[in-house]
């Protein structure tokens, strides 16, 4: 097991796969966070009945397996003749998927700001926008950030599913090496180690942030 045919070039190939994983994650998280912020504010501020359609759609994104979502979106884009490359399809699906979770995080964080604080801000003459920017945002950020870090890591792990659309990300490149070198255990361990190294330090950071901010409350 320790005598392997894997070369430095193969490791480089895995690194390229990891780069693809990070690229997909990056676009998904950027897009998902932007949409999540928008939807989260809408869900926290407007009447729940008025935003029921939005709530329902976001719930669907969280209740249908990501793999099915990816296949559906890919089939749809070819039906609609959009001719999107798999990379774009993957990023869009993952961004919507991320936004569904991000919305809940943002909504929870906004709801965690005491309503008396907000009323005090408004009665001091702040506009809604100013109240949002200078009062709600700083307070909500401390609640939301640890969960948001968790979400980002979750999306990075879930991005492994884009291999189904033919993207060669980390896990898929590992699989390609397995087919060639016939050493599944060793190569998968290397792949797992790369995932672990990308995820664990940031997970730790998130955990520490959460603990420190809770102590100061």
């Amino acid at each position: 097991m320790f005598d392997t045919a894997m070369t430095l070039n193969d490791l480089l190939f895995l690194m390229k796969g990891a780069g693809m994983t990070l690229a997909v994650t990056f676009f998904a998280v950027i897009g998902g966070t932007a949409l999540g912020l928008l939807f989260g504010v809408i869900r926290a501020q407007l009447n729940p009945w008025a935003v029921l359609p939005l709530t329902f759609v976001l719930d669907v994104f969280r209740s249908v397996p990501l793999l099915i979502q990816l296949v559906l979106a890919n089939a749809f884009q070819s039906i609609a003749g959009l001719q999107l490359p798999p990379f774009a399809t993957s990023c869009i699906v993952l961004a919507l998927y991320t936004s569904a979770y991000c919305t809940e995080i943002v909504r929870g964080a906004i709801d965690a700001v005491p309503s008396v604080t907000r009323r005090a801000a408004r009665s001091l003459g702040l506009t809604w926008g100013q109240d949002m920017r200078f009062v709600v945002f700083p307070m909500a950020l401390r609640v939301a950030l640890p969960s948001w870090i968790g979400l980002t890591l979750g999306v990075m792990k879930d991005s492994a599913l884009v291999l189904w659309l033919g993207l060669i990300e980390l896990l898929r490149s590992g699989q390609i090496l397995v087919t060639r070198l016939q050493e599944p255990m060793f190569i998968l361990l290397v792949v797992g180690a790369i995932y672990f190294l990308m995820s664990f330090p940031i997970a730790r950071l998130g955990g520490q942030l959460e603990k420190r901010w809770r102590e100061n409350d």
Binding site: M185, G192, Y195, F196, F200, A203
Partner: peptide, 23 residues
Amino acid sequence: VEVARNTPALFQIYMAHFGLGSF
């Protein structure tokens, strides 16, 4: 706990299906 939480579920399934084949 840390391996389960810091690697993709798909990786864990691959490990059970392909990885154990090494043994």
